[in-house]
């Protein structure tokens, strides 16, 4: 993402009007926002004090009853991956976590529009009732939303690379953060990473591989996973990389069982 995209508040009124009237898909250009928000500063983020206190029906309606969220797309951006996953896993609740206010609002509006469209067209599947987006900081509040071993898949697609050394602590995959992700991920659950930045790819692979609670999937296992093809093109960042003829470096890791404690 470009560093200095302006905080574009000048909305294209004609288009917005149309969206208001017909609940059509919202247009990204109304929702562009500065590319970076510092995950280390205090934001006015609302989060539950404990996972038990989270009312998921505000996001999924009745569809949340009897179901728990199992997939988390961290830094979901404009939400392309979730829209692809939704019909493929109709019984699974999935959540996008996005730090930028406007971007997460865009995803929420888009999901709302897709749900309405699904209702009118007589969609018999989940009708996008299994997807939602939360404006939150995934580097701080995962344990507030999810209990121990609740998630089965976590996605990190095209995360911000934070090239400068000083900003490495902003990177979303670090040895310290991996302990938290491992806590909310069930043994056997998977972490998917994808980036066009080779340095970042090597960084993520190095830290995930050396972490005692993760192991990389073999090439064969990776090829057999039906989700892997979605990592390439389903998000807007992925499409941008394709347009720019960039490279793509996917990797998948399995959450191992906790080691047996010695007495």
């Amino acid at each position: 993402m470009k560093e200095n995209e302006t905080n574009n508040q000048a909305m294209d009124e004609e288009k917005l009007e149309a969206a208001v009237m017909t609940k059509k898909l919202p247009q990204k250009k109304f929702y562009r926002q500065r590319a970076h928000s510092n995950p280390h500063s205090d934001h006015d983020i609302e989060y539950p004090l404990t996972p038990d206190r989270m009312d998921w029906t505000t996001l999924y309606g009745d569809y949340a009853n009897g179901r728990t969220v199992e997939f988390a797309d961290v830094g979901c951006g404009y939400g392309g991956l979730l829209m692809q996953l939704s019909p493929r896993f109709p019984e699974t609740l999935m959540i996008g976590l996005e730090l930028r206010v406007k971007v997460s609002d865009f995803v929420t509006e888009k999901i709302e529009a897709l749900r309405q469209k699904a209702t009118t067209s007589g969609d018999t599947g989940a009708g996008f009732k299994n997807v939602a987006c939360l404006r939150s900081n995934a580097m701080k509040y995962m344990p507030n939303y999810f209990g121990k071993g609740q998630l089965t898949k976590i996605f990190f697609l095209y995360p911000d690379p934070h090239f400068k050394n000083r900003k490495h602590k902003w990177r979303i995959v670090t040895p310290g953060m991996l302990a938290e992700y491992a806590y909310v991920l069930r043994p056997g659950g998977l972490i998917y990473t994808m980036t066009d930045v080779q340095d970042l790819h090597e960084w993520m692979v190095a830290h995930l591989s050396s972490h005692p609670l993760f192991e990389r999937l073999t090439k064969e296992e990776e090829d057999a996973d039906p989700v892997v093809p979605l990592l390439f093109e389903s998000t807007e960042e992925g499409q941008k990389v394709t347009r720019n003829h960039g490279s793509k470096f996917p990797a998948v890791f399995r959450r191992k069982e906790n080691p047996v404690e010695k007495n």
Partner: peptide
Amino acid sequence: FVIEAYAL
């Protein structure tokens, strides 16, 4: 690296 629980 093994977090056993959060007390929230």
